[in-house]
Simulated scan of single mutants.
Amino acid sequence: MNLEEYAAKQSVLVPAGVPTPRGVVCRSAEQASDAVAKIGPSVIKAQVPTGKRGKSGGIKMADNAEQGAAAAHAILGMTIGGSRVERVLVEERCPIERELYAAVLIDVSSRSPLVLFSTEGGMDIEEVAEQKPDAIRRHVVDVKHGFDTSDAAALLSGLDLGPATDALGDVLVRLYRAFCENDAELVEINPLAILRGGKVVALDCKFVLDDASTFRQPELAKVASPPKMTDLEQRGAAHGLRFIQLDGNVGVLANGAGLTMTTMDVINHFGGKPANFLEIGGEAYTKAEVALDLVLSNPGVKSLVVNFCGAFARTDVMAEGVVMAWESLKPKIPAFFSIHGTGEDEAVKLVRERLGIEPYDFMEDAVKAAVEAAK
């Protein structure tokens, strides 16, 4: 779940003690005009849960109230990254001396939090990583030890940051603490600015909340932007199914997130394109018809892979649900089954006798056949 900039600053950075500029959230040009009149020279920024707002015309300067109203009028109602701009953040303009970058995220390779810092702030970090990889400092955090001022000092060592070094180190420590306490997947400040006089201020903030932690972070969940979903995804959510619609042509019905992603990877390996992600487990018997209908309702689907692997969940029970759904919906596309684990003999027999489909001995063969059939 993504937080817009204003929410990330108010709900994450400010409680963590990270300095931010004065700002007011406005929903109209009139409100923006009043805000600029009180704040003075300001930056008017579109509030959407996506990046590249500046390149899209969603960030403008205003020296006075009249310019503030004009800027807000131009930004409100825009569509940026698929999101309509319904509010702007009017924020005091700061005298920037230097723009830096700081972030904390999960490092997949080490399975640990990773603190990033770069002197190349204000740019897309992906561009920095590609053009100047040495400009990004990295610190993999040992969660047993945490990240303290000595770690921050080591990360910033030799970067010629002058008197602001200690303040920057303090921000990094606070940022890591905020990352942990708020169950974040990512907290990023770009740019983290050194102002004239040496003050360090977070001029922007991107925050991504771990979806699985919303029960622990109800206040953050309230201010998070609702995920954009297709009609099929909304239908799946209404039935308690995690369905993600993709632009491929091979439908996927598998039990469990891991097996589903593996199946999608194998589809890609054989030159196909998966049409969906759909996590369904032992509940397949009760939700099979809804799940199958979701997969088949994607207009791009030309073939279907059904991949079941049971341990505690019995594959014959899951197969019974799919067979009943198939008999009810009567789809016309070719389907390719792979069934292994507890109850597989009964499941294979069930699919063979009631659907007239012979399951494959190997998942790879079922996927390969589905990819060929979708061409």
Rank of each mutant, 00 (worst) to 15 (best):
T230L: 03
T230P: 02
T230V: 02
T230I: 06
T230N: 04
D231A: 14
L232A: 13
L232C: 11
L232N: 06
L232H: 05
E233G: 08
E233R: 08
E233P: 04
E233C: 10
E233Q: 14
Q234E: 13
Q234G: 07
Q234C: 11
Q234P: 00
Q234T: 10
Q234N: 12
Q234S: 13
Q234R: 14
R235M: 14
R235A: 15
R235G: 07
G236Q: 05
G236F: 08
G236Y: 06
G236W: 05
G236K: 05
G236S: 11
A237F: 13
A237S: 15
A237M: 12
A237Q: 14
A237H: 13
A237C: 10
A238P: 02
A238M: 04
A238Y: 09
H239G: 15
H239M: 11
G240T: 10
G240W: 04
L241M: 10
L241D: 06
L241G: 06
L241F: 03
L241C: 01
L241S: 02
R242D: 15
R242N: 15
R242Y: 13
R242S: 15
R242P: 09
R242Q: 15
R242M: 13
F243V: 09
F243A: 07
F243Q: 01
I244R: 01
I244C: 02
I244K: 08
I244H: 00
Q245N: 01
Q245R: 10
L246I: 04
L246G: 02
L246N: 03
L246P: 03
D247V: 08
D247M: 09
G248S: 02
G248K: 01
G248W: 00
G248C: 05
G248E: 01
N249V: 02
N249W: 01
N249L: 02
N249P: 03
N249G: 06
V250F: 05
V250T: 02
V250A: 01
V250P: 06
G251I: 07
G251C: 11
G251Q: 09
V252F: 07
V252W: 03
V252N: 08
V252H: 00
L253I: 15
L253E: 06
L253Q: 09
L253P: 06
A254Y: 00
A254V: 13
A254F: 02
N255E: 03
N255V: 09
N255Q: 03
N255G: 04
N255D: 03
G256L: 07
G256Y: 06
G256A: 10
G256T: 04
G256W: 05
A257Y: 05
A257S: 12
A257V: 11
A257D: 06
G258V: 05
G258R: 00
G258M: 10
L259S: 11
L259V: 10
L259P: 00
L259R: 08
T260Y: 07
T260E: 09
M261A: 14
